[in-house]
Structures are given as C-alpha cells and as structure tokens.
C-alpha cells in the first residue's frame, strides 16, 4: 500500500499536504480501501473554524459512515467541490483528486504532533 513520503498522517487515517502555511487534507489509501465504495461526502463550510480532533466532514459508503477529524486547529479555506458529483474520486485517487478540504493553521508547530509515512505505515501493519 502506498503512503507518499511527503505527507503527514494521523492515526485516524487522514493525510496532510503542507504548502505555504495551508494544509490540504484527505484520507489515506488504506482508509478508502476499508470504506469500499464511497457514495457521499459531507464537507465543512468554508470559513468554519475547527479545533484539532473535531469531526468536520463525513464520508459515507452504503452501510457505513465515517467521521473525518480536523487533524489540526484552524480555519477551513477551501473544499473539493468535485467530490459532490464524484465521490468515487476518494477511491480512485485518494492522494490527488480525492482531496477533501484545505485548512489554514493557526500554529504551524502543531505539525509536530502528526505521523510521518513510516510511522503511519507501521500503525497499519500492527493493526493487521
């Protein structure tokens, strides 16, 4: 399973890509495989302030719903509108077109609390 080296990860299976103080968030390839066919994604409102570990989006498959937690505190500055019509992008391209939202962080040092690719991969391995 693929876990790109340039991303940060959380134990709840979100990935983060950091660029110019803004963070793009999605779910990992592992998470999308567990979910199987994603049928709907409820995205947060742009402008919404979130705290780390707050649930802020929901991914639904036919018989399950998973909360996506804000990996860090900040403000939602963008969401992936494409997912409204094509939720399957999360399955097809979890690290690319399947991104979910962009978060502007209050405090960049929060990043230190996250996992790197190796650490995340070993969590997955332990679990299974």
């Amino acid at each position: 399973m693929e876990f790109p080296q340039d991303l940060y990860y959380t134990e709840t299976h979100e990935w983060l890509r950091v660029k110019d103080g803004e963070v793009t968030v999605g779910i990992t390839s592992y998470a999308q495989e567990q979910l199987r066919d994603v049928v709907f994604i409820e995205l947060p409102r742009v402008g919404k302030k979130v705290k780390a570990k707050d649930p802020c989006a929901v991914i639904e498959s036919v018989k399950a719903a998973f909360d996506i937690y804000a990996p860090l505190s900040g403000t939602i500055t963008g969401v992936n509108k494409e997912l409204e019509g094509q939720p399957e992008l999360v399955n097809k391209d979890p690290y690319g077109l399947g991104w979910m939202f962009v978060l502007k962080m209050e405090d960049l040092t929060q990043l230190q609390t996250l996992l790197n690719a190796q650490a995340y991969a070993s969590i997955i391995k332990e679990g299974h």
């Binding site: 049928v39 709907f40 649930p55 929901v58 639904e60 498959s61 036919v62 018989k63 399950a64 719903a65 909360d67």
Partner: peptide
Amino acid sequence: TLQAREQHIRRQR
C-alpha cells in the same frame, strides 16, 4: 437508501 444518516449506522451522530 441513504442509510448512513440513520441510527443503526451513525449511532449518536
């Protein structure tokens, strides 16, 4: 359909 809204799946949410 759209059962992911319902209690048997989403429980307290």
